[in-house]
Every structure is written in C-alpha cells, then in structure tokens.
C-alpha cells in the first residue's frame, strides 16, 4: 500500500462527492430528467407554471457532453504534445468555463423550445424564470464539470510511474460524466422533489399516470419556482447523490490500492454482497416501520 496513491484516491473521492451533490442540485433546479416530464405535462393539465423546463436529453448524455468538452479542452492545454503546457488546474478551469457556456446555451434552447412547443395551452414564455435559474444552473454545472475533470486528471497522473487509469483525459471525462449523470438520475431523482411537486398527494404511492402533470404551481407567497425545488432537494437528494458517487469512486480504486489486483477483486465482491444484505435489511425495516404499500 502506497500512502501517496491512497491520498490521491481519497482526494478523488472528495471531488466525486462534491460533483455528485452539485449535479443533483443543478438537475433539480432545471427540472431535468424525471421532474421534467411532469413540468412538461402541467400546461396540458391546466396548470400554467413558472418552472424552468430544461429538457436536455437525460442527465447521462448531458453530463457526458459537458465533461467531455471540458476534458478535451483541458487535455489539449495540458498535454506536452501540443506545446501549451498550461498548469493543469487552470487548464481544467478553462475547459469547464467553456463547457458551462455550452451547458447554458443548451438550457436556453430547451426551455424556450419546450415552452413554445406548448403555446396552444396559453403557457407564457417567462424569460425572468430563465434568467433567474440560469445562474444557479451554470454555477452548479461548473462545479460538477470541474470536479469530474479534476478527478479524471488525478487518475492519469503517473504516480510512482503508473497512472491509476490508462485512458486519455477526454475519454475519461465522457465516461465519468455519463456515470455521474446515471447516478444523479437514479439516486438523486428518488429525492428529487416529486414530493415537492406532488405535495397534495399522499407520500409513498409513486406518481400514477392519472396524476401526471398535476403539479403544485403555487408557493406560500406567489408562484412556485425552480429555485424552490432546488432548495427542497439539497437537503437529502444532493448529499445522497454525492455520497453515492463518492463511495463508488473511492471504493472502486481503494480496493486495488490496498489489497492488490486479486485481493481487490475478492474484497470488491465482499463489498457488493454486504451492500445487497444492507439494502435488503433497510427495505424490510422501512416497510415494517412505515407500513406496506397498499394495492388499489
């Protein structure tokens, strides 16, 4: 076991945790992914709203793109092959700024496109909703992209002669971006604010087709906006997504750094079995404690 490598792995885990938390906050403010279809259906159900409709594919493709762009630009600025040799942290920041610009443009086109696509329901195109949400979306997007590309860069530094991963930076950016998007979509969406958008319905029943689009559009004062959903979700969804992605990154490298290749495979299998047992226990506990889901 090499303490320097272990320290780098810990740093990667920390960067991944921050990236996960920021990604979840960003996608919730933009109602991307799962919440998006509810915001999309609301005007047809007679609920006009002041929410942002950021329909940029799913989170995996979107984050693969932002991290791929940032990783590629950072790569050409860092790599000695191209003669610029910029300090890595500055190069990653420049790449992330350009990726954030692209992210913001895609946000604008999807919000405007989707809202105008429903103009027959008299849904107004609120430009102030776009401008007030664009800052938080771009900010959290930058933090996420920076952390993912930074983490990918840590993987390709040759520590003691061998890097942790042999893929080039642009490809690692794309792959880890897709992974993060998938985790943000699966873990984060459970806490995303279906509760926030569906607070008039009983908790725990999911969102049956009959109530889709039947969302809450008013806040205690005035209209409910996308920042409210973001505030609601940062309590559980954000930290949990961060914890999940951080654990994935840290554990998947930690096992091989500490136990070697064969020992790493065995300990990885043990961790998976332990997680399955823990999940089973947790679900049984929750069902017994809060009652079984009723079938109607």
């Amino acid at each position: 076991m090499d303490p320097v490598t272990l320290g780098v792995v810990a740093l990667m885990g920390a960067a991944a945790t921050i990236a996960g938390a920021a990604e979840d906050a960003e996608s919730n403010i933009g109602s991307q992914s799962n919440p998006n279809s509810q915001v999309q259906l609301a005007p047809q159900m007679g609920h006009l709203h002041r929410m942002i409709n950021k329909a940029i594919s799913g989170e995996p493709v979107a984050y693969g793109t932002w991290c791929g762009i940032a990783g590629s630009i950072a790569f050409v600025l860092i790599s000695p092959n191209f003669g610029i040799n910029l300090l890595p942290i500055i190069a990653i920041a420049i790449g992330s700024v350009i990726a954030t610009f692209v992210h913001s443009i895609y946000t604008i086109t999807s919000h405007m496109g989707r809202i105008v696509g429903q103009s027959q329901f008299e849904q107004p195109l609120f430009m102030d909703v776009l401008t007030q949400s664009l800052g938080p979306i771009a900010g959290h997007g930058f933090i996420t992209t920076f952390c993912i590309v930074g983490m990918s860069y840590l993987m390709i530094i040759p520590l003691n002669g061998t890097p942790l991963h042999i893929f080039p930076l642009p490809l690692l950016g794309v792959i880890w971006g897709i992974t993060l998007g998938a985790i943000g979509s699966s873990t984060g969406d459970v806490h995303y604010g279906a509760e926030s958008e569906y607070q008039t319905f009983k908790f725990g029943g999911g969102t049956p087709v009959a109530i889709q689009g039947d969302i809450v559009t008013k806040a205690p004062i005035g209209a409910k906006n996308s920042i409210d959903v973001g505030n609601f979700c940062t309590k559980f969804g954000g930290p949990l997504t961060g914890f999940c992605f951080g654990a994935v990154i840290f554990l998947s490298f930690w096992i091989t750094v500490v136990f070697g290749i064969i020992g790493g495979l065995i300990s990885g299998a043990i961790i998976i079995i332990l997680l399955i047992i823990m999940n089973e226990r947790l679900e049984n506990f929750a069902r017994n404690r809060f009652g079984p889901y009723e079938e109607d």
Binding site: I56, S57, G68, F75, P170, L171, V174, I175
Partner: peptide, 13 residues
C-alpha cells in the same frame, strides 16, 4: 487521444 469519445457524445447531443 480520446477525441472520438467527445465527438460521439457531442454529436449525439
């Protein structure tokens, strides 16, 4: 250098 990965995802988008 891995730019093929970028083109894959950027053109998908």
């Amino acid at each position: 250098p891995g730019f093929i990965g970028l083109f894959f995802i950027m053109n998908t988008m």
